[in-house]
């Protein structure tokens, strides 16, 4: 669903884009996306050391920074007061960009654009950043879920082991007992398993 009536914004391969992100995976996902789209001047900064110096050297036209990065405040002041950065960089301060800012903040993207650069010229970059950050967030969520599932399986295995040893049960019987207790008490299987493990450690 594309709410914008105009055609997909054109990419501009020579636009200098800087990604400031301490998260290696997220930065790579965005960098890759931009390169696939044909951008050739994409730089990723993971180190915050000498941020100012690097920005002066790279002279980026668009900067994308993740909202988790406390150095956002450092960047903003640089852009505001710096006489060193050749072309001061400003955020979109035009009221018409509110939708874009809302979408960016929702995705966890902070973005800065060289003053005077036409909105149409950078829209594709920002759209890409927003969609890649969303993709990363989804990935992270899936990873968290997978990790949680693994943790839960481990705890259930430990509870089964305790029951098998202490009550001389088979693995199937131990599992069935845990499931039954969970259903009777209307609790998650992993919660019941956790209480078995806790109780066993107290009784040791």
């Amino acid at each position: 669903m594309d709410p914008m009536p105009e055609a997909t914004p054109k990419t501009e391969p020579t636009l200098r884009v800087l990604i400031v992100d301490q998260n290696v995976m997220r930065a790579s996902i965005l960098e890759e996306g931009l390169r696939e789209a044909g951008y050739v001047n994409v730089t990723v900064l993971r180190e915050m050391h000498n941020l100012m110096r690097r920005i002066v050297d790279l002279d980026p036209e668009v900067i994308v920074i993740d909202l988790e990065n406390p150095n956002r405040d450092v960047l903003e002041q640089m852009f505001q007061v710096s006489r060193v950065v050749r072309r001061p960089i400003a955020m979109f301060v035009d009221r018409s960009d509110t939708d874009m800012i809302v979408a960016a903040v929702d995705a966890g993207v902070g973005s800065y654009v060289v003053d005077g650069l036409k909105k149409e010229r950078v829209k594709a970059v920002l759209d890409m950043a927003i969609s890649r950050f969303h993709a990363f967030n989804k990935l992270r969520e899936e990873l968290d879920n997978a990790r949680q599932a693994l943790d839960e399986r481990k705890i259930v295995d430990r509870a089964k082991g305790i029951l098998m040893k202490q009550r001389g049960m088979s693995e199937e019987a131990a599992y069935a007992l845990l499931r039954k207790a969970a259903m009777n008490e209307n609790r998650r299987l992993s919660e019941v398993a956790q209480s078995v493990v806790t109780a066993a450690s107290l009784l040791k």
Binding site: P70, N71, R72, D73, I101, V102, V105, D106, G110
Partner: peptide, 15 residues
């Protein structure tokens, strides 16, 4: 929050 810029932006967008 981790930065003042985030405080500002997230109040502005209604988070």
């Amino acid at each position: 929050e981790t930065s003042w810029a985030n405080i500002r932006d997230r109040v502005v967008v209604g988070h």
